[in-house]
Design a protein around this nucleic acid. Structure first.
Lengths: 168, 168
DNA sequence: GCGTTTTTACTCGGATACTAACTGTCCGAGTGCTTTCGG
DNA sequence: CCGAAAGCACTCGGACAGTTAGTATCCGAGTAAAAACGC
């Protein structure tokens, strides 16, 4: 049970935007150069983030994407939900009701009880991630309060750096 | 992000065994009749549960499967881990280190911070599920303390009951 | 100059192909109870 | 009778096929800023 690769990419995009000089949007080209994935697949991810209201897109010349709100107000949970949809770990395909179908009202009660248990667990997970803001994550990495802003559109990647291989 | 179909089936099998007269194992045939899935795939699930030490198998004539320990000592978390392996929701494919590869020591720090955050969330999820025992789930459904035991090998399924369709 | 047209650099969104994890199938081997059979 | 052999009803575990969610690709359309153009 894992989050998707798409989520990890989305998180990076948010990190990129959070350290980007506001007002200036980042073009999808620049994002692609850094993330090294499928150009068009990234655009689908970006679209999801736009729909979720985490980022905004500007079309036209010198357009691109920017953060829709302050990094202090974007939580990890929001990124998860934007890319994965609502979190519900118990699949609930109705197996309990199938297996115990000759004990009918009870089998449905059992389904309810187990759904409840997993829902509670999911709540705890979500609740914790909703306390972790993007701002806090960045501050924790830098180890200082003020986040330096850049214009990623300018900075070329040093191509002498070997491309780190992604884990299997 | 969901648990697999296999987990839901495994949970049903545990429920079946938890209401089974101890000493008498349930044959894989009977389990299959109830769960209605792939005969041999169920056996793979059963194998996982055996390896995890949740159930035991008896080979030979009139063999089958029984619970390895008291339902009070089997938690939902154990079933999850038996079927899914260790829970680690953040994929950690190394995208952060890739995207910010020209800020090297820092990018690794960021990876660590986010891993830490998700690990913490996972812990909360696991911790909660480890408090939910199979016994407690069953008691909650029945609404009474003593769980009636049956020999599922005997009880035929009333075939007049229409097979409930599984959700997509 | 100043308004209009063209160019350019982007995003939007649907249709479709690829891929890997999950699910399902097949088959030969091993194990222990039960039945059969020879003496 | 009684011990050994055969049969039976199970599990074990590897190799491989099918399915589906997630990932990747293609392409035509739309949009807004900047540049070019005409008078």
């Amino acid at each position: 049970m894992q989050l998707t690769k798409g989520f990890e990419q989305a998180a990076c995009i948010i990190a990129l935007l959070a350290t980007q000089n506001r007002q200036i949007p980042i073009s999808s080209q620049v994002i692609h150069d850094r993330v090294n994935g499928s150009q068009t697949y990234l655009q689908k991810l970006l679209r999801k983030l736009v729909v979720a209201g985490l980022i905004t897109s500007a079309s036209g010349n010198s357009g691109g994407f920017s953060l829709a709100k302050d990094p202090k107000e974007i939580t990890l949970l929001e990124i998860v939900q934007a890319t994965e949809g609502e979190i519900k770990t118990y699949p609930d395909l109705g197996f309990i009701d199938l297996v115990f179908r000759d004990f009918r009202p009870l089998s449905q009660e059992a389904t309810h009880v187990i759904n409840q248990a997993f829902h509670q667990a999911d709540q705890l997970w979500c609740q914790y991630l909703s306390t972790k803001t993007v701002y806090q994550i960045i501050v924790d990495t830098f180890g200082k309060e003020d986040i330096p802003l850049v214009d990623w559109n300018d900075s070329k990647i040093d191509s002498s750096l070997i491309l780190p291989k992604l884990k299997k």
